[in-house]
Design a protein around this nucleic acid. Structure first.
Lengths: 206, 206
DNA sequence: CTATGTGAATTTATTCACAGCA
DNA sequence: TGCTGTGAATAAATTCACATAG
């Protein structure tokens, strides 16, 4: 059991493994081999073994890996074991969908606040979240929210990020189709759904 | 001007470049250096030059790249120059947001049809799209739609994909948090927004 | 003198192949 | 015998450094 630096590529794959393992645990399964897990997730078995070996020693030769142990360990590595509160900024079509999206739960996330610049939306309630005015962003630090999801129009993305960082946010999931400049200590992950669609035709036969 | 095989990593970056170049073209700019473009997009200049060199010869030494030429060329490589019709399957919260999302336009996409399994939703109109019953999927081939976006619940993802492929779909953008098995000739790109959020805490200071 | 284009060097990631443990 | 864990081999991507063209 050795501890290497875990590469970004491995970190990108860990949530995939986690998702599958949680599913299997739900089904009551206890152990799984790298081969079976690989088939289930659509990846390679040696990739899984290699990735797990970076923080490894969780498998039993001849048997496979303990699903429960792996879930615990991956959660710990990804720092998901502590639970995180996130804020949503921009309650438009995409933002509303994100606010309602149930899939964050399994990774321990709770979207605990929502903000919008439009006064007409402020005060409205979605699920059990009341939309607040964007000027309330500064309260995030007090509320121990250091994660945010940006779903504002492109032109407002940078200033929203600036305000969030001022409010103590350390991680941003950005849905706006624009580059956001941030200090090095802040991590931004961008999802541009149109951009992902744009890669498809390249791989399709003509 | 040589033609290499363009790597997957480069293909992943091309839409980023394209997005930025379209923005700059909109502003009336004609040329841009790799350095300036890099700063604008938050990437490295040598990465841009290297990527462009794979299909290159579009720059002028001392001046930079012609924005218009680059846009044309990237569109051509990504096969976006022909325009594509896409179908949406699953008009829930996320699906509705995707259906309304304006960002597909710049890459030449047109979401031309929407399907849902819920009879209550069938017949409803969103924007100018009337939601059809899932059993109509087979009409896609006739309608020359060979791209699809899956936004159905996890349990329905695989069967939806199967039906789409049967209907002649060659590329799938999958929002369902589950692996989808497809024939090799079909390309799937998966977006799992919760999974992307799950990578953030790892990079955040504790 | 500026900025491209590209070989070469380096770093990083993937794949293989198999020793070794349960 | 089955499956992990990991060095070694291979492949791929990034970064550098600079010759070269405008």
């Amino acid at each position: 059991m050795r501890y290497y630096r875990i590469s970004d590529e491995t970190v990108r794959r860990l949530p995939i493994y986690l998702r599958g393992l949680l599913f299997l645990a739900e089904q009551g399964q206890q152990n799984i081999s790298s081969r079976k897990l690989a088939d289930f997730l659509g990846v390679n078995s040696w990739q899984i073994r290699k990735d797990f070996s970076y923080f490894g020693g969780f498998g039993t030769r001849g048997v496979g890996y303990s699903i429960e142990k792996l879930i615990k360990q991956i959660n710990k590595i990804l720092k998901l074991d502590v639970g995180h509160k996130a804020a949503l900024v921009g309650v438009g079509n995409l933002g509303s969908a994100v606010l309602i999206y149930p899939g964050f739960r399994i990774y321990g996330f709770d979207i605990a606040a929502a903000f919008d610049a439009n006064p007409k939306k402020v005060g409205r309630k979605i699920r059990n979240i009341t939309i607040e005015d964007i000027s309330n962003l500064q309260t995030l630090k007090k509320r121990k929210i250091n994660l945010a999801i940006i779903a504002v129009p492109r032109d407002a993305a940078q200033q929203t990020a600036d305000a969030l960082i001022k409010a103590g946010v350390k991680g941003i999931l950005n849905f706006s189709p624009h580059y956001i400049a941030v200090p090095k200590k802040v991590k931004v992950i961008t999802i541009d759904i149109a951009m992902d669609l744009a890669r498809l035709p390249y791989y399709m036969p003509t």
